[in-house]
Design a protein around this nucleic acid. Structure first.
Lengths: 304, 304
DNA sequence: TTATAAAAATGAATAATATTCATATATGCT
DNA sequence: AGCATATATGAATATTATTCATTTTTATAA
């Protein structure tokens, strides 16, 4: 018999387009999902997915169920929000500190939906730039931090958001663009365009250039568009998240290349104080964040 | 975690207003439902039902979940109908024969919704009165029979619909109306107003009067309203299903009394040939029938 | 074509959990 | 009070979902 579990699986399947990835999203094994799908197909006597090679395609029946799933899950979430409101006072604060400037791009729409869901919770961005955002948490100046920090500290909890790739960004026609993948040595004496943050907070520098002893120059800009503008006008190259530059690449404003054969990857976490982590509106912030990210950002993969 | 199972339970709970009855509706034990409810309350940290004595009352949280449940279940059913359409050709016939004249009252709205769900299925009532409706099934003149027959015969399947009570119907002020419950002997030499069917098909006669050797007179009428009219004008008394006369009793047009201390009960089944029983639109006819009956008819109880 | 890697399917074993059974407790009614 | 009825509860059981280990399928490169 059909259960919500199946519907949750189906949406994950549609969002990821792969059984294994969907399995990660719902915190089950690939095998479990395979069995679930089989059970559903047996139950309805209908194929739900059609596989063409590795990629999977939903059949008409599958699409119909996904449509159901999305509707139902939205309604369940709405109901659960109402219950959470009933169960406790939900006025509160949520001050967010960002470690990574680019994150602001996807965070904004999420903040909007969050405000709709929890009108009584004051949602703020801790503005300006801070050397150590985790310190803000401890000092009580922020409630949650979005960043790559994940070594456990007492009183704090880290919730994984997603993993993404950092790509080298070049001007169109840049000579390095001829290579599919850039090597460490390709960066020798290059000018890097970065956000104005300490060197150790820039992955390309701390994880690639410094260990290899490669020299570089640096120039900073506050905004992502400003960085891209500098890159496009050949003042240097940048290293930015794949999802942050997608639309610029699609419009051939700049080109993007992998850094090293395995690529340069970074993980994003939401860090909060323990007390806050248990509040229903924080939990909801987490789930809506994850959902919206996986729904809108291309090329990110589930974590943990 | 919330599952559809819980939602199904919740609606049954709202419809029956009792844990034990709800349990019957979802084919589980009372204990299972009690555990389910407890689990939900633990999960949401909220009471969902409040008990005032025996009757149970839904809390705000409970009501919110019931609202969710009803919405979701409707959507699931709609999706499943679409799937059934996809899975096989759904043009077909469904010719219904009625054993009990009164059933026509509740069957009509059900036929309407069925026609909406399965526009391609020809739905007909086998008109007129037939001595042995089961024979119509075997002769292929009807596809399903709604009646009280339930002894198993090869090639046929019986699906329980519900159990209902047959009440004695009297004119207001009738001297037997002074008694709360009528005894067999009260019927001695009474004039019975019945549908024009053989004696053995009238429960009051075959199950009560005949075994006790009580003599009676008989007069027939085709329509329920005609029978009631005759009863109200003191031409005799009738024995009719509780749900069929509810509104007339409420308007004091007639009065109704229990027959015997335990009452006179009858069971209703949907009987069909095996081949038809597996068709999706037959299954849907069954479930919508049960749902609508339990939703609209007062005083009926689940069967089996 | 063959070799190899990645993804999914499958069957058996296991873990998880829903349900029942056997009670206890609470409530309503005479 | 005492009985009948309804629900709650804990332990035992049954069911079922999930994992683990493995095979099959497909894609890619040599």
């Amino acid at each position: 018999m059909l259960e919500l579990r199946h519907l949750r699986t189906l949406t994950a399947l549609r969002e990821t387009g792969s059984v294994s990835l969907a399995a990660k999203r719902v915190h089950l094994t690939q095998s479990a999902l395979s069995h679930q799908i089989k059970a559903l197909q047996d139950y309805y006597q209908l194929p739900l997915i059609q596989r063409q090679g590795h990629a999977i395609q939903l059949t008409d029946a599958g699409k119909r169920l996904v449509r159901l799933a999305e509707k139902v899950i939205m309604e369940v979430q709405a109901a659960e929000r109402d219950l959470a409101r009933l169960s406790q006072r939900t006025t509160g604060n949520l001050r967010i500190a960002l470690e990574c400037h680019t994150c602001f791009d996807w965070l904004m729409p999420i903040m909007d939906t969050f405000r709709e869901h929890w009108p009584e919770v004051e949602l703020d961005l801790v503005s300006g730039f801070h050397a150590d955002p985790i310190k803000l948490l401890k000092q009580g100046e922020a409630d949650i931090v979005i960043g790559s920090e994940n070594k456990l500290q007492r009183g704090l909890v880290h919730h994984p958001l997603f993993r993404f790739e950092i790509l080298a960004v070049l001007a169109p026609g840049h000579e390095l663009g001829k290579k599919r993948v850039l090597d460490v040595v390709d960066f020798t004496n290059i000018t890097l365009i970065t956000y104005p943050v300490p060197e150790e907070r820039i992955d390309l520098i701390s994880k690639v250039l410094m260990p290899a002893g490669i020299p570089w120059q640096r120039r900073t800009a506050e905004l992502t568009v400003a960085i891209l503008q500098l890159v496009a006008s050949r003042r240097g190259i940048a290293a930015l998240p794949n999802w942050g530059i997608k639309s610029y690449v699609d419009h051939d404003y700049i080109i993007a290349r992998r850094i090293g054969v395995n690529g340069l990857w970074s993980d994003l976490f939401v860090t909060a104080r323990k007390e806050i982590a248990s509040l229903p509106y924080f939990q909801d912030f987490l789930t809506t964040s994850r959902n919206q990210c996986f729904a809108t950002l291309e090329g990110i993969i589930p974590l943990e």
